[in-house]
């Protein structure tokens, strides 16, 4: 017994070293599992506080570019909206948040009739001018809600997984596994949530994303692990006609909303072995320079997930029954 204690005392440092390394490896393994670590990550209050304070200072130097980006996005959204002015494309979608459009055609007809009726030239009153032009009409229901958040920490240099911390958390309605996009394209998905902060595992990590290019050809996009500017889209049908400069978008198969830009094609490789194309995409987002993101809340997400889970369970039960026979 004395000898054992002497041995332990002699090799105490080595034992401590091995013990600490084992704890480290346990933490690493835990953080790399798909569930993500709940122990050590920057969504906790302390790290979040420091990152937010630092960001409060830095953010003033970026206001000009942020403004520019917001203007550009506004213009793009206005353009997109103008395309939907006269069509009820969303008529059959059912969910909770009503989408209202103003029936300008009918309103114009009414005013034209009014002009014909009276000999006076029709002059809209101030009240009419302030109101949106036309008659309000609910055309459908939005299935996504966007929650704006500020990026308070961001990394691009890690080789396997890169994380982003934002200043919105569970108190603002953010839950695990929600999709995150920015005005330019996809960003990632929520990995951990605390009360006022959340960490996002960004596209620059070892998770695959289902993407499509023009014409609806679907592939799998993954990060090629050495540059924060490029991702690789693989398993694209070899007969697909792609040109450099084409844009890849998300599909509705994953957590992301459909048709969010992923990147533009910069190189095309043909793999005859498995009859597929590998496309190198330049990410539409500049991950070195993220400032504001939107967390996407899928209003129909739980319903869809439950349905898919039920279908999978049914399939599994059927398979089990076959195996028992």
């Amino acid at each position: 017994m004395v000898k054992l204690i002497q041995l332990i005392r002699q090799y105490w440092n080595v034992i401590l070293f091995v013990l600490l390394e084992l704890i480290c490896f346990r933490l690493i393994v835990k953080s790399n599992s798909m569930q993500g670590s709940d122990l050590i990550n920057s969504s906790n209050a302390l790290a979040g506080f420091f990152y937010e304070k630092q960001n409060d200072v830095v953010t003033y130097f970026q206001l000009r570019t942020v403004n520019k980006e917001l203007l550009a996005e506004n213009a793009r959204l206005h353009n997109e909206l103008s395309g939907f002015q006269y069509f009820d494309t969303l008529q059959n979608v059912s969910a909770k948040v009503p989408l209202v459009v103003y029936d300008t055609v009918k309103a114009r007809k009414d005013s034209a009739l009014a002009v014909n009726d009276s000999t006076q030239p029709a002059k809209p009153t101030i009240v009419q001018e302030l109101r949106p032009f036309g008659n309000p009409k609910i055309v459908g229901y939005a299935s996504y809600t966007y929650i704006a958040a500020r990026v308070i920490n961001n990394s691009v240099v890690n080789d396997r997984n890169n994380y982003i911390t934002i200043n919105r958390g569970a108190a603002d309605g953010i839950r695990k596994d929600m999709a995150v996009v920015s005005s330019e394209g996809i960003v990632g998905r929520v990995a951990d949530v605390s009360n006022h902060y959340a960490t996002i595992i960004s596209v620059l990590s070892s998770r695959n994303i289902s993407t499509q290019i023009a014409g609806g050809n679907i592939g799998v996009t993954s990060w090629s692990n050495n540059s924060p500017d490029f991702v690789t889209m693989s398993q694209v049908d070899i007969r697909t006609k792609v040109r450099k400069g084409d844009t890849a978008y998300t599909t509705s198969y994953s957590v992301y909303p459909e048709n969010v830009p992923v990147g533009t094609v910069v190189a095309i490789d043909t793999y005859k072995v498995n009859n597929s194309l590998n496309l190198k995409l330049r990410l539409s987002n500049n991950f070195r320079n993220l400032k504001y993101v939107y967390v996407v809340k899928d209003n129909l997400g739980t319903e869809r997930k439950d349905l898919e889970k039920a279908a999978a369970a049914k399939e599994k039960a059927a398979m089990d029954a076959v195996h028992k026979k």
Partner: peptide, 12 residues
């Protein structure tokens, strides 16, 4: 590690 979301790599 806590600040950089690297699990326990820096600690190791």
């Amino acid at each position: 590690d806590m600040f950089m979301n690297t699990g326990g790599i820096h600690a190791a």
